[in-house]
Design a protein around this nucleic acid. Sequence first.
DNA 1: TGCTGGCACTCGCACGCGCAGAGTGCCAGG
DNA 2: CCTGGCACTCTGCGCGTGCGAGTGCCAGCA
Lengths: 338, 338
Amino acid sequence: MLSERRLQVLRAIVQDYVGTEEPVGSKALTERHSLGVSPATVRNDMAALEDEGYIAQPHTSAGRIPTDKGYRLFVDKLAGVKPMTAPERRAIQNFLEGAVDLDDVVARTVRLLAQLTRQVAVVQYPSLTRSTVRHVELLSLAPARLMLVLITDTGRVEQRVVDCPAPFGEASLADLRARLNSRVANRRFADVPSLVEDLAEAFEHEDRGTVSMVLSTLLETLVEENEERLMIGGTANLTRFGHDFPLVIRPVLEALEEQVVLLKLLGEAKDPGVTVRIGHENAHEGLNSTSVVSVGYGSGGEAVAKLGVVGPTRMDYPGTMGAVRAVARYVGQILAES
Amino acid sequence: MLSERRLQVLRAIVQDYVGTEEPVGSKALTERHSLGVSPATVRNDMAALEDEGYIAQPHTSAGRIPTDKGYRLFVDKLAGVKPMTAPERRAIQNFLEGAVDLDDVVARTVRLLAQLTRQVAVVQYPSLTRSTVRHVELLSLAPARLMLVLITDTGRVEQRVVDCPAPFGEASLADLRARLNSRVANRRFADVPSLVEDLAEAFEHEDRGTVSMVLSTLLETLVEENEERLMIGGTANLTRFGHDFPLVIRPVLEALEEQVVLLKLLGEAKDPGVTVRIGHENAHEGLNSTSVVSVGYGSGGEAVAKLGVVGPTRMDYPGTMGAVRAVARYVGQILAES
DNA sequence: TGCTGGCACTCGCACGCGCAGAGTGCCAGG
DNA sequence: CCTGGCACTCTGCGCGTGCGAGTGCCAGCA
């Protein structure tokens, strides 16, 4: 077990390294933090921390830098979440309140997060599967062609074109529209399948093909996880990553373009609070030298989607976590109001 | 006026520089291209080309590299558009045909362009103002709250919430919906304002407030240029930009995040064919060392939006122009079919 | 037992130097 | 107008050197 002072030494190393971006040595440490002991003592502590794998030295006779394990300990035990200041809170709220629709909310959130944390921001659109249905609309495009429009309580809209096996009259259309809405309006997406399964039976034989095709399209739309959209921003902040550019930044850019990867990344965050994944804790290889700070947000008590930032493992964790948490909270409020 | 051979020298310089990414000297030129003259002659030609501002040398006694003006001449006079090969065409078509909806078409187009050109791809969603209306839908969310959904012939859907000054009955709603659609369905967006201006007069006095509010919301939605969305991809290709990374890449990333900038960029392309803007020809400062190759695409004969790529001025212009043109053509086809 | 000062040692890095190689401009001759 | 030759000018690279930061270890002290 590490003594109290050694933990302080680790904390000091992390803070200094995050600040200066350079390996930190024993002498500099004692000068900048009043630890009350001499450099020699700190050296012993450092040797111990290195044995335990919390810090490492890039080359012999250079200062130490924290390892992923070191950051992990720092985040878990040594640092809290730094709350936003009052002016910052006001700025967040003002900025988000100007949004006109869902796209705008998400876009503003991304900008905001990127600016606050000076890192790459990722915001997932409110997920379909955890939302409720506000309305289902059916439009006739051609005699045997319908458009299905699904509107969620979070303001999201999905549409699909349905090619019918047989022409479908206006009366049947109105009937189906009414029945559908009476069954599913204000219900959770997860419940929809069981609510509509016997709906085709209420129709004439000739219409059943079309009805069941509409229903299956609807269910597809609900389930389709590919459709989990997200928005990213602040990629220009990647330039502040480090000196050894292209090699580090390239896989990150690639990962950011793979929506699947990002969604999985955000999805891994299970806790109710802010989740931090550091370096190699990220499954995706390209992100092995980055950390991901994420959190769920939602209009009610429940989280409907995630948002977060991606940055170098050498990041200001308390500040970033504070910003992410605050933004999530305010976005939730905005969504609840609209 | 430049002699034929000097133009050939310029062409050779551009080709070699694009290939090797290194300043090209007189000797290397004569070896790799059979110009039929000696290096000394080429040197004279180069001196002339440099006087005219078509090429420059990074430092004394290094090879030459093309200037923006040199690339311009190359694109205008010395190089054609390299057509795609048959297998490439097939691949493009196959890849795009799998798309399920408009978002998917755009997403696939971006990926495709980025892959083909190995550069950053930008695709604008089919613009509202040049499309036609397929359908307008009105839904009642609450007694005094409506949702307006606008569906375009290109499959794009826009929605707006309208807070009414007074409750609006189901009958009025159906009436308004029917009248609206009979007037604007299949009409061009540009024509809509004049088609609906007197619509409020057909309603009872108590409903007029709501109707005119719906109409103005509709018009706003049509006009709103902020809503011109676009999608970008292939940013990982920025890593292939050059050696002096961060300084060049940062402003580009920043520009790419400014939708306004990008839209303006694409908007500048006026020709019916492929447009190329080289280096300083781009108004935006951050893009002074990039070239933009763009073209309009559309479902019918008319262009409804633009797409293009952003890359280093040192790019394979014929190939890039060919890829951009081909992709635009096939996207147009796909949109026309759906 | 744990902290401290001292000391020798190890590297990485910046600096200066010299050298090779590529490329140029110019000139005289065909 | 083209060509071969020649002198010149850079850049980039490899090498050796000195400096400084930082370490590990050890003996002494509370």
